[in-house]
Amino acid sequence: MKRFSLAVVSALTALATTASTGAAAEKVTLYCSAQEDWCQVMARGFEEETGIKVNMTRKSSGETFAQIKAESANPKGDVWWGGTGDPHLQAAEEGLTEPYVTPMRGELNDWAISQATSAGDKTIGIYSGALGYGYNKDLLAAAGLPEPKCWADLTKPEFKGHVQMANPNSSGTAYTTLATIMQLFGEDKGFDFMKALHVNINQYTKSGSAPIKAAARGETTVGIVFMHDAVKQAVKGFPITVVAPCEGTGYEIGSMSIILGSRNLENAQKFYDWALTADVQSMALQVNAFQVPSNKGAETSPSAPDLASIKLIDYDFKLYGSSAERRRLLKKWDEDVSVLPQ
């Protein structure tokens, strides 16, 4: 109430006196979970266009979720933009975010809308990216390995000690991998695949994109990650080849939510609508973000993995995003897979 009345008071003063004093009150606090430079572009872009001050903090999606949850008694943030969809869905499920139906929906791809409907309008898709893997050409040649093309290739005995993926307990990317394999092969065969893969894994990293960075620096041959992360390494000049597995693959939907109890709700909604426009989503190209934008009119980088040519599964975000299913799968993976000898 205090802060609200403060905002009202200063808004009135702004009307009565000059605009400059009022501008200080016009602000929005943005929690950003995409890469740093993209977050900067978004924050500065919105400031320039609307004059609303953006207080932006960048953290990974897991950290942001933990923070929003810890702050829930007295929320400090307004909008949460970017980061993989799972924590956004989890936040919606736990009632940490607020429903909002944007007028921009007509311009969005279907997958972005279905992300919103599966969370009761509490979140929406802003970009998407397919899962896959990347390998280091030089190391592959040095070890005399055949070029992998499918998921199944990674379980071949000659790849022992060459594959890296993140630990699904700690990384959303790796959990998406686990869920994708379940949906591709069915649960029983899926776990057989995970066991076979486990034998070849040289390290389960903590963070989701670490495997491809390791591959880029020549610390592992293959890294299982989102393809746009692999493309980024290749564009930077690392000897990485990106693979879309032949059996088909799952994908993530990067999302955006408005935090329940936002103190600048109107500005938060303004940002929300703005972030979904085609021009804004095209800005991803400036910062080498190779995700596919959710606005149909937005430009996509020519280096970005073309979702149309990749065999995508019909990923069940509702089921695999739910806390209960996640807990069950992770427990099973912990007990049946991670304890096996390598």
């Binding site: 897991g62 979720f65 933990a66 949850k69 799972d86 307990n169 700690s170 990384s171 903590k206 996640r326």
Partner: peptide, 9 residues
């Protein structure tokens, strides 16, 4: 750290 920020809060 990852018990807090990981896939399973």
């Amino acid at each position: 750290f990852f018990a807090i920020v990981g896939a399973q809060y």
